[in-house]
Amino acid sequence: MKKKILIAFLLLLTGVMSVFGFAAFNNSVKLEEKSTPTIATLEPAYAVTADTKEVQTRLKKWGYYTGNVDGINGPKTIAAVKAFQKKYGLTQDGIVGPLTAAKMGINLNQSSSSSNYSSNDRYLLAKVIYAEARGESYTGQVAIGAVVLNRVEDSRFPNTIAGVIYQPWAFTAVNDGQINLEPNQTAYQAADDALNGWDPTYGCVYYYNPETATSSWIWTTTTVTQIGKHVFAV
């Protein structure tokens, strides 16, 4: 009898430990998810946009500006810009427009849809490819990457890779957490191909699995091709 009580007690204790263990595991998973490392971008894509600091740095180097490089477009900075414009026969409005920027060697042509992809983007793209299409053929994986990039270039979607991938409810893998799986080498290769312009879907911005798609709206899109389990559409 004693033995039975002891066994029951141990079983109950195991149960208690399991409950706490599960709670602890849950917390650790959350922590891991939060601390998923991202590859540091060596130089951000916006490194060449003309911000006030960049203008001040250049003008200071060339002797037009004597104030601090503080990023504030104050009277001293405007006066320095005007002096620079005067020197090069530009309209003296104190604004660093395209002509003034070009004279300063600064690029203002960064468009919001720019295809200036960084290593973060490569990582994110590989993640979404792995999460959404790891069972598919290589071309099927490249196609998923291409759809993400096509969305970035399409006015109907957010203008960054992160914006497209994390747009709420856009990708199942984000909703169910599979996006947090670590991508394999094939997914990275597929991401590289997509980033380098490979697009087996020729501009598709939608894909779905016809066996599991629930949204009736998705059936109204125009099908371009089917690769593996996914139908690609515009």
């Binding site: 060596l42 130089e43 490194a47 060449v48 395209p98 070009a102 690029n107 960084s118 490569r122």
Partner: peptide, 10 residues
């Protein structure tokens, strides 16, 4: 200036 591009290392 139609386009300006910078060589960056990623």
């Amino acid at each position: 200036v139609a386009r300006t591009m910078k060589l960056v290392s990623v």
